[in-house]
């Protein structure tokens, strides 16, 4: 990997986009679905009603847009950066989701849930520090 300042800058910028837009997308989906309310998809007409309420929700579309931005940033950064360098960002995302849910949705995140999230972040970091490829390229 080249060590130019420009390469570092665009790598950090795209990882920042990933860390912000991935969790933001999930939180916006959560907010949109809370507005729609609990769904029942017991019959085909229920499922169609659910689908129509989802596709007419602006918040859901903002969430989908955020997740697409996350995915594009993820794909782009992987075109030059190592997977094992980028992957730990997905660990930070679990903490970000809890933070955003607390501040944007006023969700109560208990100390026990924070502890669970912290362990998940640690586990994802450990997974990220293993060789990214264990099979021969086809």
């Amino acid at each position: 990997m080249k060590s130019s300042a420009g390469l570092h800058f665009k790598t950090y910028l795209l990882i920042l986009l990933m860390v912000v837009f991935g969790p933001l997308g999930n939180v916006l989906l959560g907010k949109g679905m809370k507005r729609i309310g609990a769904v029942s998809i017991a019959t085909p007409s229920d499922a169609l009603d659910f689908l129509s309420r989802v596709v007419t929700s602006g918040t859901i579309w903002l969430g989908i847009g955020s997740l697409i931005t996350f995915f594009l940033a993820y794909m782009l950064v992987l075109s030059w950066a190592d997977y094992s360098y980028v992957q730990p960002a997905s660990a930070v995302a679990y903490g970000m989701v809890a933070l955003l849910a607390h501040f944007m949705l006023r969700e109560v995140v208990t100390p026990m849930r924070w502890m669970g999230v912290l362990l998940i972040c640690l586990g994802v970091l450990v997974v990220g520090h293993t060789p990214p490829r264990t099979t021969e390229p086809s």
Binding site: P23, N26, V27, L29, G30, K31, M33, K34, I36, G37, A38, V39, I41, F50, Y94, V97, A98, A101, H102, L105, E107, V109, R113, G116, V117, I120
Partner: peptide, 13 residues
Amino acid sequence: AVLSRENVSFVVP
């Protein structure tokens, strides 16, 4: 469907 009932800080982890 799950997010319509549960908190996002529970579902995502």
